[in-house]
């Protein structure tokens, strides 16, 4: 059962304690696109993103209701770890496994999921992932170096490599550049545009310019409500909603 959408979300509601954080949101994310979710801090974008790979399962105080389909598969029909195998994630702050080498950080997913037979195959996967994440040239001479020794920007690209080494269908990115400087941000954005050839990417950002630069589709979320969604060009040039226009112009 395959769908033309990588992700379909139907009337999603999320409550954290008594707070209604996501209010009845429905979205469809076409395959092999970069889909940006933008909105001011505290609007619920990250909360929405983390529900796509069921990360809220660990937090009993968070209640998620509604339907989410990944490539046509109802996420409630499968185990959380099976779902996350299909849906990779890059976090707001780089979170490589600090005690492991660069190589092991990328290799651990394929290794624990037993995705290869020979060591050479694993080497190939690691090289492929690091190249896709635009990190290979900087680290190829010293793959045994500890991940904690890398710069913040390099660590974040390492996290991308770690996620895509499993060849997920979808890659979720939760404000991946918020802890990075301008140069690192530019690098990361380049790699995101490259990655959409192989993956569907959902990126959360509080920066409308970033959404405009890299995304094909954009959803604007404000106060837990979906205000507007559509092709990035349309939303930025002819916003239908007054609030979107204000936000895009930096007035919210």
């Amino acid at each position: 059962m395959s769908s033309k959408y990588a992700i379909e979300i139907e009337s999603l509601n999320i409550k954290i304690g008594n707070k209604h954080v996501i209010k009845d949101i429905s979205l469809k994310v076409p395959k092999n696109t970069v889909f940006a979710i933008m909105g001011p801090s505290g609007s619920g974008k990250s909360t929405l993103l983390r529900s796509i790979n069921k990360l809220w399962d660990l937090y009993p105080e968070v209640k998620v209701s509604g339907k989410i389909y990944i490539d046509g598969i109802d996420v409630n029909e499968i185990e959380a770890h099976e779902l996350r195998r299909m849906v990779g994630m890059v976090f707001q702050r780089p979170n490589p496994f600090p005690h492991m080498s660069i190589y092991d950080n990328v290799a651990i997913g394929p290794r624990l999921h037993k995705l290869y037979k020979k060591k050479e195959e694993l080497d190939k996967i690691v090289e492929w992932a690091l190249k896709k994440a635009y990190l290979w040239d900087e680290v190829k001479d010293d793959l045994k170096r500890k991940a904690s020794k890398l710069s913040g920007g390099q660590q974040q690209r390492l996290c991308i490599a770690r996620a895509i080494a499993l060849k997920p269908k979808v890659l979720l990115m939760d404000e991946p550049t918020s802890a990075l400087d301008v140069v690192s941000t530019k690098r990361l954005e380049e790699s995101i545009v490259e990655l959409k050839k192989d993956f569907t990417i959902v990126i959360v950002t509080h920066n409308p310019q970033q959404a405009a630069r890299i995304s094909d589709y954009v959803a604007f979320i404000y106060n837990g409500e979906l205000i507007e969604v559509g092709p990035t060009k349309d939303v930025f040039t002819r916003p239908k909603h007054e609030l979107t226009e204000k936000y895009v112009l930096g007035k919210v």
Binding site: L58, H81, G88, N95, F97, I108, A163, L166
Partner: peptide, 27 residues
């Protein structure tokens, strides 16, 4: 061990026990 490191392991589709006993073992 920061929660965000454990979540990094979970996001790779690993079971919680695998994260605890294999991924962060060295840590």
């Amino acid at each position: 061990v920061p929660m965000v490191v454990k979540e990094g392991g979970l996001a790779l589709g690993l079971k919680y026990s695998t994260v605890l006993f294999k991924v962060i073992r060295g840590l």
